[in-house]
Computed example of a mutant assay.
Amino acid sequence: MKPWTQLDAAPIPGGATLKLMRRGEDEFSITLGHNELMNSRLRGSEESLATLAIERIGQRPGLRLLIGGLGMGFTLRAALAALPADAEIVVAELIPAVIAWARGPLSPIFAGCLDDPRVSVLEADVVAVIREGQSRYDAILLDVDNGPDGLMVEANDRLYDHAGLAYTNAALRPGGVLAVWSAGPDRNFTQRLRQAGFAVEEKTVRARAGAGGAKHMIWLADGAGSASAIRPAQQSSKRRR
């Protein structure tokens, strides 16, 4: 088997380091320590994050989506393939190197999708983007960290606690949906979604589309799409594990 070669490394908040690895000519991996966060040959569940959410909201004029986490672009490409020409996709990515990799060594995987006129990429914390986006999005797709039980950045917990979910609910338009990717199930997170006013469906999907592999979890949560979802008591609440 061919060995892995490190192409680049990037510090992330909290002092850890992301590494971009390549094996052979066309297999790439992004790792954190000994954990592989994503691999270019395992894209099925990331694509499902987009397709399931778009199926949920249906086709309507002027759809606007927010994707939290650029990764290797699998969710973005799947969303572009499913959306009409008048749609808009905002991608919020916290780590500058991930955006640079997308335009550099990972550009064959991205296949020009960052230049699609429907796409805007923000070097920003998706938490801040959500909090500034009251009633702005038809769908919010989160593939941040390893899911609600994160590995990378402790501050990512702000997405998945009671206050974070309340802000996300408020950022959705009526009829909007929140879709969340995770490496595995999390009953406590399902409960928090319901407490934040979402109607929740859990979907188990495969890492390899139609070909088995590890099982991942996607939550599809229909939101109220109302600023009333933000309750003062929730804004100071902490995530419970």
Rank of each mutant, 00 (worst) to 15 (best):
M1I: 06
T5Y: 05
T5E: 11
L18N: 05
L20Y: 04
L20F: 02
L20E: 05
F28M: 13
T31F: 03
G33V: 09
H34P: 10
H34I: 13
L37T: 09
S40Y: 03
G44D: 11
E47I: 08
T51Y: 02
L52T: 03
I54L: 15
I57W: 00
R60I: 02
G62Y: 03
I67D: 00
G71R: 01
M72A: 09
G73F: 00
E88R: 15
E88P: 02
I89G: 01
V98T: 08
I99S: 05
W101Q: 06
G104F: 04
P105F: 07
P108T: 12
G112V: 08
C113E: 11
C113Y: 02
C113L: 04
C113P: 00
L114R: 01
D115R: 03
V119K: 02
V119R: 03
S120L: 11
V126P: 00
E132W: 01
G133S: 15
Q134Y: 10
D138K: 01
L141G: 01
G147S: 13
G147K: 11
P148M: 13
V153K: 02
D157K: 12
L159V: 12
L165E: 10
Y167V: 01
R173H: 08
P174Y: 06
G176N: 07
G176Y: 01
G184F: 08
D186N: 14
R192I: 08
R192G: 00
R192A: 14
Q195G: 11
A196P: 02
A199W: 07
E201P: 01
K203T: 10
V205M: 01
R206C: 10
A211F: 11
G212V: 14
G212I: 14
A214K: 08
I218N: 08
W219V: 11
L220Q: 09
A221C: 10
D222I: 12
A224M: 14
G225F: 05
I230K: 05
A233H: 04
Q235R: 13
R239W: 04
R239C: 04
R241D: 13
R241L: 14
R241F: 13
